[in-house]
Simulated assay, not measured.
Amino acid sequence: MTHHQASAPQFFLTAPTACPYLEGQFERKVFTHLIGTRAKDLNDLLTQGGFRRSQNIAYRPACESCRACVSTRVLVNEFKPTRNMKRVQARNADLVGVMHDAEPTTEQYALFRRYLDARHKRGGMLDMSVLDYAMMVEDTHVETKIIEYRRRGPDTFITGRGVGDLVAVSLCDRMGDGLSMVYSFFDPDLDDRSLGTFMILDHIARARSYGLPHIYLGYWVNGSRKMAYKVRFLPQEHLGPKGWERFSEEAVRQGG
């Protein structure tokens, strides 16, 4: 039997579940599969339309009574780090990130487990096994990369690689108009380094070097303290009914 790929993606709707960000709210998602030779182009198109990727699934919120989740992207060419961000960069100047194909390792998983146990004890990912983690990294039909961050060594200027234990990891998709940060985690014992902020700054620098105009940060959830950090990277655009629109600093000062 010959199988023909559908000319257009099929979309499905999930049943309502408790919202992980806003108490008392329920979330639904619309999703489709990212498979086959058209997956990369479809992922670009859907990401620009407010979808996120998880393995070979592209999804976006489709909640009935709430519109708090807003797709966010940083304008790379206009971005200038704040004084605090410059301090974060200086604090992590001894780290180097190496980008390679998305391949899971036991070292990554060990760091991933420590991160979840310390930072997300009630999260939906807490029970992920090593096989689940491998699927999160490998199950992709788009151009997915992984960046491993380690301390600089005496030969780093020659090899381009760090040495010692893994400090942080970022999984990202390279798209036609930017980098989409899929998932990041880091050593929870290094809180003073602000590694989450550092990795976003590193991705902005990488996108600029590639000539890509955007960093997609996923959803900013208005009213969720957990997601408040995303609106610190200015200027940025938010996806609304009229398309991508510039997000104002005044809105940040007023708390969104």
Rank of each mutant, 00 (worst) to 15 (best):
A8Y: 14
V130N: 03
H120Q: 07
R119Q: 11
G97N: 08
C69H: 04
F157V: 11
C69D: 00
F233Y: 07
G255Y: 14
D41A: 15
T37L: 13
E64K: 14
V30E: 05
R193S: 11
N92M: 15
K230V: 03
V96Y: 00
E249R: 07
M135D: 07
V74D: 02
E103R: 12
V70S: 06
K40P: 10
Y115D: 02
S7T: 12
S224A: 14
M175V: 09
A58Y: 01
Y183K: 07
F11N: 09
A93G: 11
L234S: 05
M135T: 01
G123V: 09
L95W: 12
G256L: 08
A39V: 02
L46W: 03
L201W: 13
G256Q: 04
R193W: 15
G97A: 00
R38W: 12
K242V: 08
V231I: 08
M99P: 14
R206L: 06
P235G: 02
H100D: 09
R193C: 11
G49I: 05
L126Y: 13
L126C: 04
G124D: 04
V76W: 02
G178Y: 05
D127H: 14
V30Y: 07
F112I: 06
S180C: 11
E78G: 03
D41I: 11
M128S: 05
V142Q: 02
S129I: 06
A168S: 08
F31E: 05
T72E: 01
K121H: 12
V76N: 01
N77W: 08
L95K: 02
P213E: 09
F79P: 06
T156D: 10
A39I: 00
R206A: 05
E138D: 09
E143K: 08
A251Q: 02
V76M: 01
I146P: 07
D44K: 11
D41P: 09
T144R: 01
P241T: 10
S65V: 14
Y219L: 11
C172H: 15
K40W: 03
H141L: 03
Q236V: 03
D202C: 04
E250L: 15
D139G: 06
P188F: 14
G36V: 07
G153D: 04
F11R: 10
D155C: 12
T106W: 09
P81V: 05
H214E: 00
E64N: 12
N84D: 13
G162P: 05
R152S: 11
C19K: 00
F112R: 04
Q254M: 13
K226T: 00
V96S: 06
A68C: 15
G196C: 06
A205T: 03
W244L: 09
A6M: 15
D165Q: 12
L95F: 14
S129M: 03
R150I: 10
T106I: 11
R60W: 03
P81A: 00
T14L: 10
Y133L: 01
F12V: 04
K86D: 05
L116T: 02
T32E: 02
Y21C: 01
R161F: 12
G218S: 13
M135A: 08
V182R: 05
R152F: 14
A15Q: 15
E237M: 10
K226C: 07
A228C: 13
K242W: 10
R246H: 09
L195I: 08
G196H: 07
Q10R: 10
E249F: 12
D139F: 09
Y219H: 12
A39Q: 02
